[in-house]
Design a protein around this nucleic acid. Structure first.
Length: 699
DNA sequence: TGAGCAGCGTGCACT
DNA sequence: ACGCTGCTCA
């Protein structure tokens, strides 16, 4: 038990031992944030005796959630009957809605739309919105939802024709989703919030269930997420948030840095700052601190290195993007020759458009690289086709999914035929399948088209029967009927490989979760499609945004020129650009390379460019590159420790007096047995708490 | 013979 | 992702 806190430094240990009331852990880059949160979780469960299922830890990515879960379970040691709930905001919303969405008068088997599906919905809508791009409309809708603005209110608030049209699109979009029992990602949180806001009993119930709530990356929360958290804290204020105001880089998708800046006042929270950095050598931290000091809207902290001196930052000046790519490629070649693992090297850029030139340079130098954050696996067209088939198998009346696959593989059902099919069904207020069953479509289609459509529905009916028997049998039958036919040309080998990889995932899922259904797999996949970075065997190339949370021994930041980094546009926020610079710099452990070009070809013309002001602000100077003599690591270990071994004793009953290591004396109000565990509701001098019986003693 | 489908070539990418 | 052109079926 002593080992729990002995791994932490003083500030970390203080944060980990905080129990009641709101807490802000201001955790700088590389300051052991995950270690601190997971230790706090383990402390609450193992030392304080909070039942694990009474805790809730929310993250933004699955990757973060998985990492925390692994580390928390490691600290918790022995298997616990109810593991703590540790998941993304969106998964939490999904779990909640699958249980409670009937309060909004909706069915629990809703379809979850990813961004690609959203685009298809927009395109299906009335063409009077064609003036806007789907991305514009979806951005507007998302920003409304994140501000809790419903369509009708958006319409009333619209200050110009422009926004009036957008609000109409929002209204039409939302109506379409409701008619088809669909939710988008924002809805997972918005609908959850609506249920909690309009139903005090449920809010109270949820709040009592989750006594201790932790939130990771709090600087990236939007208004909707904060509102949801407030509802979950209806009956208590045990909200512990972790974040770094200097790493708030998602304002473009609704994140609002003011939430973390004002958290202490709003929630009456205590603040603990983690400024000890365990990641980067000193020159790297010096640059990061110098750069971010130019920002004014920040809570303020300075990172201290524990890793000692290292190589100075290397500034690379190049004539143009081709020269830049060649310079970087040759530096990487040298590093690889020194035996540095390619996985420990990353190239970061502010703008995805800059990746092209660097890729060409790496290709010329024959350096294997992986472009991270490009098209994610489950967003690939062929995988989405397979998933659309699965949705149709689950629900033959799902016309949205049917429209995706009705002509994949080609069935001679082109644009015109599809228009006929869908509009005929619609005019009878039937799904396409029902219209087909009632023979309403036959007359409008050709003989071959009818044959094709019949074959499609026959096969899907057959697959439904297979699915009743077993998931694995279903998969084989599916592959036989459709997927093999996707293998038409030599180009499709990659796609076929992707599908095979997906099958592997599918089989694995049902081996491990034999009690789950196909619908559970689909939900799982929808959630995993958003921003989970996998670093492979090669050099990583990615945007600064996707690099957040990652670390590499050697980091190259390219395109450090005025206009590119900081990226300056109409509504550019220079402070956020600077935070992006800060994130980029603090990814490096051993050595950082900063590169700029004097000219760059962009959007059809060559532009002359000045070096980024950030180079000067970070006090990065030209310096002769001396190649690394890699220091051995000097990990410092924490100081503070406090043990708390707790004995269990006897059985408890209502009214008996007990003592707890931390909360002192109390009186048992209720004894509850559940799943082999004994829970006590104890009154500690007016504070009622639910504690596992093993953690208190009779007095 | 024409309507509609599929395939090909060219533009263009926001985090 | 768009338009253009040859191909197929009624």
């Amino acid at each position: 038990m002593d080992t729990l806190l002995s791994q932490l430094n003083q500030a970390q240990a203080e944060a980990a031992q905080h129990i009641d009331g709101a807490l802000l852990i201001l955790a700088g880059a590389g300051s052991g944030k995950t270690k601190t949160i997971t230790t706090r979780l383990a402390y609450l469960i193992k030392v304080v005796g909070i039942p694990p299922q009474c805790t809730l830890t929310l993250t933004f990515t699955n990757k973060a959630a998985n990492e925390m879960r692994t580390r928390a379970l490691q600290l918790l040691g022995a298997e616990i009957p109810h593991p703590p709930l540790l998941c993304t905001f969106h998964r939490f919303g999904l779990l909640f809605l699958r249980e409670h969405i009937h309060h909004l008068g909706r069915k629990h088997d809703f379809i979850l739309l990813d961004s690609d599906d959203q685009k298809r919905v927009i395109k299906k809508l009335d063409s009077s919105f064609a003036y806007f791009s789907p991305a514009q409309i979806l951005g507007y809708i998302s920003s409304c939802k994140n501000k809790l603005i419903p369509p009708d209110q958006a319409r009333k608030q619209a200050k110009s024709e422009h926004f009036l049209d957008l609000s109409k699109a929002y209204q039409a979009y939302q109506a379409f989703l409701e008619d088809n029992n669909m939710l988008d990602f924002d809805d997972l949180l918005l609908k959850s919030y609506e249920i909690l806001a309009s139903n005090t009993e449920i809010a109270t119930m949820m709040s009592e269930r989750y006594q201790y709530i932790m939130v990771d990356e709090y600087q990236d929360t939007n208004f909707l997420q904060v509102s949801l958290l407030q509802k979950l804290c209806t009956t208590h204020s045990n909200l512990c948030v972790v974040g770094d105001d200097d790493q708030s880089i998602y304002s473009w998708r609704g994140a609002d840095i003011s939430h973390i800046l004002h958290f202490a006042q709003t929630f009456g929270a205590k603040t603990i700052t983690l400024a000890q950095n365990y990641r980067s050598k000193e020159p790297i931290l010096r640059a990061a601190n110098a750069l971010i000091a130019h920002n004014t809207s920040r809570l303020g902290k300075e990172l201290h290195s524990t890793r000692g001196q290292g190589d100075e930052i290397v500034l690379l000046s190049n004539d143009d993007e081709v020269a830049e790519a060649n310079t970087i490629a040759s530096h990487i070649t040298t590093l690889l020759a020194q035996g540095i693992a390619p996985t420990q090297i990353a190239i970061l850029f502010r703008l995805n458009a800059l990746s092209r030139s660097i890729e060409e340079g790496l290709n010329r130098a024959k350096i294997p690289y992986k472009l991270i954050g490009a098209t994610r696996f489950y967003e690939r067209a062929e995988i989405k086709d397979v998933l659309a088939y699965f949705r149709v198998v689950l629900n033959l009346n799902d016309d949205f999914s049917l429209s995706r696959i009705i002509n994949v593989p080609k069935r001679s059902l082109g644009k015109i035929a599809q228009e006929k099919i869908f509009s005929t069904a619609q005019s009878h207020k039937l799904s396409v399948y029902k219209a087909y069953k009632q023979r309403l479509l036959e007359s409008t289609l050709s003989h071959t088209q009818n044959k094709q459509l019949r074959a499609l529905f026959d096969t899907i009916e057959l697959l439904q029967a297979k699915l009743q028997e077993s998931a694995l049998g279903f998969l084989d039958a599916f592959d036989e009927s459709f997927a093999l036919r996707l293998q038409t040309s030599a180009d499709d080998i990659d796609r076929r490989a992707n599908i095979e990889e997906f099958y592997g995932y599918f089989r694995d899922f049902f081996m491990q979760n034999p009690h789950q259904g196909l619908d559970d797999l689909l939900y799982e996949l929808s959630l995993s499609s958003s921003s989970d970075v996998e670093v492979g065997e090669s050099v990583s190339c990615m945007s600064v945004h996707s690099s957040k949370g990652l670390e590499f021994d050697y980091v190259f930041i390219i395109g450090c020129e005025e206009g590119f980094f900081p990226l300056l546009r109409e509504e550019g926020d220079l402070q956020e650009e600077r935070r992006l610079g800060y994130v980029a710099i603090t990814r490096a452990r051993e050595k950082l390379f900063v590169s700029h070009a004097h000219s760059r070809f962009y959007k059809g013309k060559r532009e002359s460019l000045a070096p980024s002001r950030f180079i000067k602000e970070a006090r990065i100077h030209f310096c002769e590159d001396s190649f690394a003599k890699v220091d051995s690591r000097d990990d410092s270990s924490g100081v503070d420790s406090r043990g708390a071994k707790v004995d269990s004793s006897g059985s408890f009953s209502k009214g008996c007096a007990v003592s707890h290591k931390i909360f002192g004396l109390g009186v048992v109000q209720e004894v509850r047995r559940q799943g082999g565990q004994e829970y006590l509701r104890i009154n500690f001098g007016g504070n009622i708490r639910l504690i596992l019986a093993d953690f208190v003693q009779r007095v």
